[in-house]
């Protein structure tokens, strides 16, 4: 099924039933006098097919928030809902891509992508088909039999993305997935991931401290401050089709200026 998209998406999102809802999440570390509030009553609604980013200074609690959304960290208060239903822990409905140690080193590239499918008990033939499809999408069909140690950093992240997508998650959560890559590879992957998203329109919530990356990929950018609160939500009204050169346009730079100022 091919969904048609308006050139600007952000306005339509606020009315749709959210795919992922983060409701009144609070996270405190420690107790009593030493207690630190990492996430302070954050509520977000991520619409189906939306690509959104949380940007914030390091240590602002954005990673903690994403980890709570994935079900990997328990919140002090609040709840996470997927398609309107509260979720008690991690599950295949919220796939995740991390910055480091993303692949299982003992599995070949193909077996890494098949990991979630095998756990689901998907028939072998179907697994093979799906793995081949997603390896083709990320352009790594020739590396199917290689072990992760033979891959470059960018290739590893592409495999990690293929593995997450092959599992058909409702939402894809990404924790600075391109943060450890050199700037050329990073831009390549941003463009690659934008095209991939344009094809699949999977719902994504990503964390980054790279402002340009956030604007380039998202329909909405959430600014998180050092108090662990969402300071502002900025809809990105840029054309749906984006190329790296767009980073140099006046509209793009206006967004960048606004966000950079908010982060200061």
């Amino acid at each position: 099924m091919q969904t048609t998209f308006p050139t600007t998406l952000s306005s339509s999102f606020t009315h749709a039933e959210p795919k992922l809802e983060i409701r009144n999440i609070v996270k405190t570390f420690g107790v009593g006098k030493d207690a630190v509030t990492a996430v302070d009553n954050v509520s977000l609604k991520i619409a189906p097919n939306e690509f959104s980013c949380i940007v914030g200074p390091s240590g602002c609690g954005k990673s903690t928030l994403l980890s709570i959304a994935a079900g990997l960290t328990r919140a002090t208060a609040g709840e996470i809902l997927v398609d309107g239903t509260q979720v008690p822990g991690p599950g295949a409905d919220r796939g995740m891509v991390f910055q480091h140690y993303t692949l299982f080193p003992w599995l070949s590239v193909a077996d890494n992508v098949a990991f979630g499918l095998k756990i689901k008990g998907m028939p072998k033939a179907e697994q093979k088909h799906k793995v081949a499809y997603y390896l083709d999408i990320v352009g790594l069909s020739n590396q199917a039999k290689a072990y992760p140690k033979a891959l470059s950093g960018g290739m590893k992240q592409r495999v990690a993305i293929a593995r997450a997508l092959a599992n058909d998650p409702e939402v894809l959560l990404m924790d600075e997935p391109f943060g450890a890559l050199d700037s050329q590879t990073k831009e390549q992957l941003q463009a690659f991931f934008h095209d991939l998203w344009a094809k699949t329109h999977i719902t994504v919530l990503m964390i980054t401290h790279d402002v340009e990356e956030a604007i380039f990929l998202s329909q909405r950018v959430f600014i998180m401050d050092r108090n662990g609160q969402i300071k502002k939500t900025i809809p990105i009204n840029l054309p749906a089709h984006r190329e790296l050169d767009m980073k140099l346009t006046a509209d793009f730079l206006d967004y960048k200026r606004e966000i950079v100022h908010l982060l200061r």
Binding site: S67, A70, G71, L72, G89, P90, G91, A92, R94, G95, M96, F98, H100, Y101, T102, F104, P105, W106, L107, F115, G116, K118, I119, K120, A160, R163, A164, N167, P169, L173
Partner: peptide, 29 residues
């Protein structure tokens, strides 16, 4: 074993038995 390695398995739908069998055992082999 890095936490991320276990966490990524959880988000791919692994339960604790899957984690033991398909992540912890091969990782420590």
């Amino acid at each position: 074993i890095p936490n991320e390695t276990l966490n990524v398995a959880y988000t791919l739908g692994a339960n604790r038995l899957d984690l033991l069998r398909s992540v912890i055992l091969p990782a420590t082999l």
